[in-house]
Simulated assay, not measured.
Amino acid sequence: MPRLLVVDDRESDRQKVARLLVDLPDVTIEEASDRDSFLAALENPPDIVLTDLHLPDIDGPSVVEAVCERCPYVPVVLMTRHGLKDEAVAALKAGAASFVLKKDLKSQLKLTVMQMIVVAVERRRQDRLARCHTRQHRVLDLPTDPDIIGPTVRLAKRMVEETAAVPAGPRGLDKQEYEPELIGFSETDRLRIGVALEEALTNAVYHGNLELDSEMRDHDEARYYSLARERALLRPYSQRRVRIELTVARTGDPCQAGADDLDVLRRPPSGPNLRFYVEDQGAGFDPASLPDPTDPENLMKAHGRGLLLVRTFMDEATHNAKGNAITLIKTAKGDGDTE
């Protein structure tokens, strides 16, 4: 049964929406009138969010961003008034799926919501299918381009969410809804995994392939990034690549065969659930030569800070002998025992 969340501070407007949609089959309408009630409603994500563009304590773009961050498969439809063009455009850029002018609610709202129901149902089906992954392995050959770092991190985080945050055991796969108790990585873990991978990729692109010294960033940050843009267009820097291997398994060692065997799936999570490998084509370096980033005098310096975060957030972070490749390993907790 599709659930529609109506976010509007005016009770009369919420009631108007409910009246216009009352005859839609099997649609449940829920309401939120302010920021707190809206965020609370996202704890049990609806199928569609229909929101006013202006609320007393949160604006339309912020509503969209919150939905995209917490439940990215939920489409957001804006209700807008004339004269709010800039705000509407900002909300659409933030990820809103559609909009309806308030003056046209009677003629357009029902059709728009019906379209979004189709989208939402299909997205949920795709999400359920994605969460049936037992193991994922991606190999990427990336250019020396800082703009590719963000999309790569988002891909890795999505793999973790699909594979390492799943129902506790294969029994849940036969049910229409997922078990409320999950295994795998907590939200904090997933955030830290993303940060660690981003730092590893940043090191590979800037320090490895572009051969930039982070000490320069401490003294002249503008020059550091200007030189990065220049080198990205010049040989040999522009011809270098970054090799990425992203491997995530529901349980057991993600790089061993048989991770999707039923006997393996029935066991509690054990061993590394995640292994990332990042290799650049630079000259490499000696990790032992870095100054201690935990020293108070070095803590706020860019030099070595990224490696400190990587080593702190991952269970293992090991370089090859040349120093141009790093392997990151993270173990998921089991039985809902996440921090």
Rank of each mutant, 00 (worst) to 15 (best):
137 H>V: 08
262 L>S: 02
123 R>D: 03
189 D>C: 10
107 S>L: 05
102 K>M: 12
272 P>A: 09
278 V>M: 10
265 L>K: 07
137 H>D: 06
309 L>D: 09
94 A>N: 13
105 L>Y: 08
60 G>C: 12
305 R>L: 15
297 E>P: 00
6 V>P: 00
207 H>A: 11
232 A>Q: 05
186 S>I: 09
327 T>P: 00
162 E>G: 02
114 M>G: 03
125 R>P: 02
44 N>A: 15
115 Q>P: 00
282 G>N: 03
99 F>H: 03
68 C>A: 15
185 F>P: 00
66 A>D: 06
156 A>K: 02
41 A>M: 05
299 L>M: 13
311 R>W: 05
159 M>G: 07
54 H>C: 00
311 R>I: 06
15 Q>N: 09
51 T>V: 05
135 R>N: 08
18 A>E: 07
209 N>H: 07
153 V>S: 01
109 L>N: 01
172 G>V: 11
12 S>P: 06
264 V>D: 04
11 E>T: 15
305 R>W: 15
132 C>M: 13
236 P>I: 05
56 P>I: 10
37 S>C: 13
72 P>F: 10
281 Q>E: 05
114 M>F: 03
139 V>G: 05
28 T>N: 15
213 D>V: 08
215 E>R: 15
329 I>F: 05
329 I>E: 01
234 L>R: 12
97 A>K: 14
258 G>I: 10
144 T>E: 03
260 D>Q: 04
